[in-house]
Design a protein around this nucleic acid. Structure first.
Lengths: 162, 162
DNA sequence: AAAGATTGAGTTCTCAATCTTC
DNA sequence: GAAGATTGAGAACTCAATCTTT
């Protein structure tokens, strides 16, 4: 799409058309409200933050529930220090355990604990149900395809942009 | 859409189909990366956080650059105390001014300052350009329509859900 | 020196409690 | 008591500096 360049006689190059503005505002509002709601639900269901949940998903997806810190970092695309602080807090709460790596003594191996598995089990089902109800239940196949195309395009742009 | 209920012989009620899972993960990744990138740009261009930018947009959109705190609250959908802390910090930095309301002495009136206007002017053009380049430039009219329909639907669901 | 990870200080967000005026 | 807003304490995130091992 070559976006709308003229509107009411004024040049709008470099700006957004009315439709684009609306979509942008709605996208921001949707993500804000969606994440706020899901965060509250995770907190209520299992005392987990979104950050906790993300870490636990990455760990439980991995073989034996173990992952190096730098691997988690690329899974989650978080800053080093954010992840380090987060893991320290999660260890204090008993959700994960830190161990040193046998083959590289610089490295830490993070393991999800039984309590961590229990917490994510308690949270996941209601969480996924909410995602389905709020986002996917009313979507047609065509809408899902279209949404995926948009997401893929924007992610591609972000890759180019570094 | 009635989502996919059977897959490889297993019942998936209450869960997400493969396509839905992918879309959900990509949506989370897109919003994370997009907001992270735009936040960095705002910071570099004008020393503004996303939060600062949101407040300044709401104020400069309003007549005479003035808005009551509870009005900003419903504009931004923020928690009371978050907004209050944010405004305190922005006043300290000279971006806004707080005054007491003449007709209701409980109330505070927030006004954008000249420095606030200058800051958002410095940030806005590059910000909008990035939004266009990263999100809208490659979108067809049909994709924009479809995206808008999805956003409207999800926002509607969120309204129902309270 | 580079890779893997942690630390501490400063900033921001959340939650509950509080204060003032209606 | 309710509405409008602030405060303080604790948790989370960012940035730069640091530490250890390779």
């Amino acid at each position: 799409m070559t976006h709308q360049v003229f509107r009411e006689g004024r040049v709008l190059t470099g700006w957004l058309s009315k439709d684009e503005q609306r979509a942008w505002r709605d996208l921001l509002e949707m993500t804000d409200r969606l994440t706020a709601r899901l965060a509250r639900e995770l907190q209520d269901a299992a005392g987990l933050s979104q950050a906790d949940y993300g870490v636990l998903v990455a760990l439980t997806d991995a073989p034996r529930g173990r992952r190096r810190v730098f691997e988690l970092q690329s899974d989650l695309r978080w800053e080093q220090s954010r992840l380090s602080h987060q893991l320290t807090r999660m260890e204090r709460r008993g959700l994960v355990r830190k161990g040193t790596c046998t083959t590289d003594r610089r490295g830490a191996v993070i393991t999800v604990t039984a309590a961590g598995r229990a917490a994510i089990r308690a949270a996941a089902s209601a969480h996924v149900a909410s995602v389905r109800r709020l986002v996917f239940d009313d979507l047609t196949d065509r809408q899902l395809d279209c949404l995926q195309a948009v997401l893929t395009q924007v992610l591609g742009r972000l890759d180019e942009a570094g």
